[in-house]
Design a protein around this nucleic acid. Structure first.
Length: 346
DNA sequence: GGACGCTAGAGCCTTACCTCA
DNA sequence: CCTGAGGTAAGGCTCTAGCGT
């Protein structure tokens, strides 16, 4: 079984990796995953080709849909009944033991406020359930602040100027806040993952939409994508490294084999003058660039037709200025040498 | 049209926190 | 309970492109 792993830059065509991996034995890489995406890549990085997207994606499948990640989050009044539910979410999540007790804890920083600044009687921001699954980043963050108005204000700014607002996050630490580790819920991660498969970069609109759908701050979505891209790149680097390592090993082995063969041929030449009767391959060397090109080779059955030779066994008895070498071996082509030979031949 | 400053976004590296064995 | 390793969200820095002046 051979799968292709393309975890890298989606702007690079997935097929390019396949070209590469095709030269690896199917035993070499047993596990590859295609994450290359059709939509996305540089065009999106440079501000998304909207027309292209519009052409390819039917408008009815693009209509804003509220994805209900929150098992018991109420449908907003102005929200049509277009909520989608994820199959992995079951209604019994509501009573899941590890679930956040929304009414008890009151708040979850993971959540994007339903209405910024909307407050209930006790002064806390009115937030519906963010996600009932385990998320370690609870509202203690704000409680530590002694005021959740701060976060409301920041959320507001996040919505309007996410970058500016996020750059101010460190201010909290200066005020005695410790950075609290957030862990996204499975559902949030899964949805972000799906989104990443579609496009590995986000434009501001997409970021905001995702943030709203997942009840996260835009900055969190942005950071997740940054980290995801980093992980992708790291994995791709590992795969590339492994591939190059194998190439190196193969070439080293081949070099060793050829050296040995050369020694044998030299020995044979001195002891047996008729060695040219062996199946032969002609390698032509261009005198100017010194590139070696295979000009003829063994037949598929393994027998070879030796080119016309002069008495010495060399075939450069014609007017061709190139130098030909006769080797009593079949050529073995490797990913790099093959490509180079093809390039040289062209 | 070129220079300059500002802003936003991306990449990269690092840090801090969390989970788990 | 402690500890170290690994995973990952987030902070900070730099670079680049786009835009307005």
């Amino acid at each position: 079984m051979e799968l292709a792993l393309s975890l890298g830059d989606a702007s690079k065509p997935f097929s390019s990796f396949l070209d590469k991996s095709a030269k690896i034995s199917s035993k070499d890489l047993g596990f590859c995953i295609g994450l290359g995406s059709g939509f996305g890549g540089k065009s999106e990085e440079k501000g998304e080709n909207r027309e292209e997207f519009d052409r390819r994606v039917p408008s009815d499948s693009r209509s804003p849909v509220q994805l209900d990640l929150l098992p018991f989050s109420p449908v907003p009044r102005n929200q049509p009944a277009t909520q989608l539910r994820f199959p992995w979410l079951s209604d019994n999540l509501m009573s899941e033991p590890g679930s956040t007790d929304v009414q008890g804890r009151g708040l979850d920083v993971n959540r994007f406020p339903v209405a910024v600044g909307e407050e209930v009687e006790d002064g806390t921001t009115a937030l519906s359930s963010p996600n009932s699954t385990v998320s370690s980043f609870q509202m203690e963050f704000c409680i530590k602040n002694g005021s959740n108005r701060l976060s409301n204000k920041r959320d507001l700014e996040m919505e309007t100027h996410p970058e500016r607002a996020s750059s101010r996050a460190s201010d909290d630490e200066e005020n005695g806040l410790t950075r609290k580790k957030l862990r996204l819920s499975k559902e949030q991660s899964a949805f972000l993952e799906e989104s990443f498969k579609e496009h590995n970069t986000l434009n501001p609109k997409q970021k905001l939409a995702l943030a709203k759908q997942l009840n996260l701050r835009p900055r969190q979505v942005e950071v997740w994508f940054q980290n995801r891209r980093a992980r992708t790149k790291l994995k791709q680097t590992e795969v590339d490294c492994e591939y190059l390592k194998r190439c190196c090993e193969t070439l080293t082995e081949e070099n060793r084999r050829l050296q040995k063969e050369l020694q044998e041929l030299r020995a044979l030449k001195t002891s047996q003058p008729f060695y040219m009767q062996l199946p032969a391959t002609t390698l032509t060397m261009c005198p100017s660039c010194e590139r070696v090109v295979t000009t003829s080779s063994s037949s598929p059955t393994g027998t070879a037709t030796p080119p016309p030779t002069n008495g010495n066994g060399n075939s450069n008895s014609n007017n061709n200025p190139s130098i030909s070498l006769q080797l009593a071996t079949k050529p073995r082509l490797f990913p790099f040498s093959q490509a180079q030979a093809a390039k040289s031949a062209s």
